[in-house]
């Protein structure tokens, strides 16, 4: 039996110790926020925080999370009460199809929470392990920067003829 804390709550897992953390979260704990995009550590859709550090849950056996803190997107906020970071993504178009979003949010949060610099280059560096095929990243980076600065409104899209 493996004990771990998931989103602040103690959880127990009985089963194969080498089952992927991603499968344990999704199948055993029914936390489907973290996604599988590749299963080989390339896309970051499965990103969760392990003791505050972003990891690819598709590469980690659950036994490696024993006695540790796991945080998933489900811990950040609810549709009714979005966290500042989530609200910023909503406001600025940081999510399109949304499949990369849970991983992006978790990675961005880890960056900001660990005192990472709120500038374009550092945010891009921090998110380099999270693939997004929809956005071209700019609105994601803007969302993260705005959340870090506590800004309110996105810049208006430029339109010469309104």
């Amino acid at each position: 039996m493996i004990k771990l804390r998931v989103n602040g709550k103690p959880r127990m897992f009985r089963g194969a110790p080498f089952k992927r953390l991603l499968d344990v979260l999704r199948e055993d704990f029914r936390l489907t926020g973290a996604k599988e995009g590749c299963g080989e550590g390339e896309c970051g859709a499965c990103t969760v925080l392990l003791d505050g550090e972003p990891v690819n849950a598709c590469l980690i056996p659950v036994c490696q999370a024993a006695g540790r803190r796991v945080e998933t997107v489900e811990a950040l906020g609810t549709p009714e009460k979005l966290s500042k970071l989530q609200a910023s993504f909503l406001e600025r178009g940081g999510a399109q199809c949304g499949i990369c979003t849970p991983g992006m949010l978790v990675a961005a949060r880890a960056h900001l929470a660990s005192g990472g610099r709120p500038d374009d280059a550092s945010v891009r560096e921090a998110l380099a392990g999270n693939l997004c095929r929809c956005t071209g990243y700019q609105h994601i980076v803007e969302s993260v920067l705005a959340a870090a600065k506590g800004a309110k409104k996105p810049a208006k899209a430029k339109r010469p003829r309104a």
Partner: peptide
């Protein structure tokens, strides 16, 4: 720039 309708679900891992 009305906000994305299904955004809150996608942003919280609730979108299935």
């Amino acid at each position: 720039s009305a906000l994305r309708r299904e955004g809150p679900e996608k942003l919280t891992g609730r979108a299935l």
